[in-house]
Every structure is written in structure tokens, then in C-alpha cells.
């Protein structure tokens, strides 16, 4: 099992406490492309960040590839995140002052001075290969400001895949894309899952959800599986 959520709960404290996750349990195995749908504020992003080892749950257990990241130290969890997980965001979050090649290479920083460190030459070749794969081979020296939204998201996807993660976490990756580019991104994520990884996609987009192997519906912090046919319908 690549990702396991076992009775995971998360509440945001404050004047008006919000139960973002309520005893959420689900599993994702390798090769799976899972989509989670639901209305705004239902806890989708909280689930994604918790799966991304960035937001510790109040209760329950998160297991990724047999490891319990929230039992690790902060630095160990950061390294684990860099090696095992890839992120794609709706807003792309590319570093504005780095060109595409450097943006794609940025995840290698997390491997520096660790046993998983990659030879810079090999990393560079891999980054160029990914950029070529996503149709950005002639834009490697361009900064994100000179790219279209679709190109930026493809670059972000290349960055997410550089360290050969086990799990790809995507938060509305097609939210700002035209249908053509959205199709390209979804196609790439499917290919990643097919190659032995796993994808957890959080989206409002029905077409994106339809691309997934299985879909969950989330409401008020609770998760329930949605029949695939219902999504496609």
C-alpha cells in the first residue's frame, strides 16, 4: 500500500473551530489515479496537505510507502517528502527568478547532502528529458513569466516528477488551463500512475475527475467513495 489514511482527523482551532477532516480512511496503491471531489471548504486541500506531510493530523495515522512521516523529525520528514512526493498546484508556484531548467531542478536541493543525492549531470539530463517530454525543450532558458499557463503547469509537473516520486499530489492542476493543456496534464498524470506511481488529485473539474481510476466525494470533512460511473455521467 503506497498511501494509507487511517481514521485521520484534523481540526483548525480558533474562535470558530473547523473540522476539516473527520476520521478519514482510505488507501491508494501503486498504479492508482485517485480523484477527490467536493465543494469548496470541504477539506480537500487539508487532506492533500496532510498526505503531503505538510500538515500533521490531530488524530489517526498516515502511512506512506510503509513509513510514518509524522513520526519523523522535521528535517527527516522534509527529506522524505522530497524523495517520495511530488506536488502540482493550481497556481503552479514556480520560482519566478529561475528559468525552467532550474525550476525543474529545484527538488534536487532537498536531496543535497543526503544518501539520495543525485549527480548534478544526471539530474540535469533528467530535467531536460522531462522538459522535452512536456513540450518545453525549446524553453528551458525562459523564466516562468514568459510562459503561458499551460506551459507553466507542464513545467510544474516536470518539477514534481524529477525526483521520481512514488506519489503525485495535485491540487486543481487543471483549474487555470484551457482544455487542450488540461488534457495534456491529465494525460501525463495518467502515464505517471501507469508507470508505477500513484496520483492523488483534488479537483472541482469533472473532466479531471473522470480521468481518475476512482473518485471520492468529500463533504464536511468526511470522505466517501463515489461510483466511477456517476462521475463519468
Amino acid at each position: 500500500m503506497l498511501l494509507r489514511f487511517d481514521q485521520v482527523s484534523k481540526t483548525y482551532r480558533g474562535e470558530n473551530p473547523v473540522e476539516a477532516l473527520r476520521e478519514v480512511s482510505f488507501d491508494i496503491d501503486t498504479g492508482m489515479f485517485v480523484a477527490i471531489r467536493g465543494p469548496s471548504g470541504c477539506g480537500k486541500s487539508t487532506l492533500l496537505l496532510t498526505a503531503g506531510t505538510l500538515l500533521a493530523p490531530d488524530h489517526g495515522e498516515v502511512v506512506i510507502n510503509g513509513e510514518r512521516p509524522y513520526a519523523m523529525s522535521g528535517d527527516a520528514r522534509a527529506s522524505f517528502r522530497g524523495q517520495q512526493l511530488g506536488f502540482v498546484f493550481q497556481q503552479f508556484h514556480l520560482v519566478p527568478y529561475l528559468n525552467l531548467l532550474d525550476n525543474v531542478l529545484a527538488p534536487t536541493l532537498s536531496l543535497a547532502a543526503t544518501p539520495a543525492a543525485v549527480d548534478p549531470g544526471i539530474a540535469r539530463d533528467r530535467a531536460l528529458e522531462l522538459l522535452q517530454q512536456f513540450g518545453l525543450g525549446d524553453r528551458v532558458r525562459h523564466t516562468p513569466a514568459k510562459l503561458s499557463s499551460g506551459e507553466r503547469q507542464r513545467c510544474a509537473l516536470a518539477r514534481a516528477l524529477l525526483n521520481r516520486p512514488q506519489l503525485l499530489l495535485a491540487d486543481e492542476p487543471t483549474g487555470n488551463l484551457d482544455p487542450e493543456n488540461a488534457g495534456l496534464v491529465l494525460q501525463a498524470m495518467r502515464a505517471f500512475a501507469a508507470s508505477g506511481g500513484a496520483v492523488l488529485l483534488v479537483t472541482h473539474d469533472d473532466r479531471a475527475a473522470a480521468a481518475a481510476d476512482s473518485t471520492f466525494w468529500m463533504s464536511d470533512g468526511k470522505l466517501r467513495q463515489q461510483p466511477h460511473e456517476a462521475v463519468q455521467a
Binding site: 505538510l54 522535521g74 528535517d75 522524505f80 517528502r81 522530497g82 508556484h93 529545484a106 532537498s110
Partner: peptide
């Protein structure tokens, strides 16, 4: 934003 992304990419404190 950049700090958030770098942390998400696995950069240590």
C-alpha cells in the same frame, strides 16, 4: 510563496 513551495519540495529548515 516561494518559501512554501521550497518547503513542499523538501528543503530543510
Amino acid at each position: 510563496e516561494e518559501i512554501g513551495v521550497l518547503r513542499a519540495l523538501g528543503l530543510r529548515t
